[in-house]
């Protein structure tokens, strides 16, 4: 049953990604820009923003999993938190990689200590530390408790990090969806939403797989222990 759902998900994902690549590179009209490099680079937006959204979603799941763990002490929630933290770090890494790729042709620099850039980097560091902590601790209920505590404090800090750096002026393009003037043209909006949905589906698929793998590891280890006992 479980593997059947995964198979269907995988097929949908393959189709959705093919469609979204077509939409992004063929279907969406060129933007008006003086710099031809910018016209191409702009299309990274369809990957960059959904990756950032996935990162936040993943870290929110870490938070929920941590709270649920402390409330129930169920291993299941610990594993969901870990799986989600790993995926979150992966996608924020993608944000941090795709950002400079866009920035180089457009701004002429790879990196600048700008609001969004700095806060994304800090966010990434928080969850890398979370995963590092788990590496340094032996498996057991103590590790589960400690990482749940860090998972909760970490997520509480996320809005504060974003808020704190607002203080500076930003070069980063504004959230285009929100503004009425200069908002995305209808095809762009559609392609963006499609990409967002595809990425979200990818998250669902990845967390399912990672969670299954972690449970499998547990079962295997337990069976080894059992053999030792007998």
């Amino acid at each position: 049953m479980r593997s059947k759902i995964d198979k269907i998900l995988l097929i949908i994902l393959l189709i959705a990604f093919s469609v979204s690549i077509y939409l992004i590179f063929q279907w969406v009209p060129q933007i008006k820009a003086s710099n031809p490099a910018e016209q191409i680079a702009q299309r990274i937006f369809y990957f960059h923003v959904p990756s950032a959204w996935l990162g936040f979603l993943a870290f929110f799941v870490v938070f929920c999993g941590s709270v649920a763990y402390l409330a129930t002490r169920n291993r299941k929630y610990e594993l969901i938190s870990v799986a989600s933290a790993e995926i979150g770090v992966l996608f924020i890494s993608l944000v941090l990689i795709t950002g400079p790729i866009w920035a180089k042709p457009v701004w002429g620099i790879w990196w600048t200590w700008d609001v969004r850039l700095t806060s994304s980097l800090i966010l990434w560091l928080i969850y890398v530390a979370f995963l590092m902590l788990r590496r340094y601790l032996p498996d057991g209920s103590k590790r589960a408790n400690l990482s749940a505590v860090v998972g909760i404090i970490g997520f509480t800090d996320v809005p504060i990090v974003y808020y704190s750096i607002r203080w500076w002026e930003t070069q980063h393009p504004k959230a285009v969806m929100a503004s009425s003037e200069g908002s995305l043209a209808a095809p762009m909006f559609f392609a963006f939403m499609f990409s967002l949905a595809t990425f979200t589906l990818l998250y669902v698929y990845l967390i399912r797989k990672r969670y299954q793998l972690l449970t499998l590891e547990d079962t295997l280890n337990k069976q080894f222990k059992e053999m030792e006992i007998l």
Binding site: F130, L133, K142, I153
Partner: peptide
């Protein structure tokens, strides 16, 4: 939290610096 690990000092820096950066 960090004191439970062997690399207490490094881990404390890793955990605390990013979280406390806004303050």
């Amino acid at each position: 939290v960090a004191v439970h690990t062997r690399n207490q000092q490094i881990l404390l820096s890793l955990l605390l610096w990013p979280l406390v950066s806004p303050i």
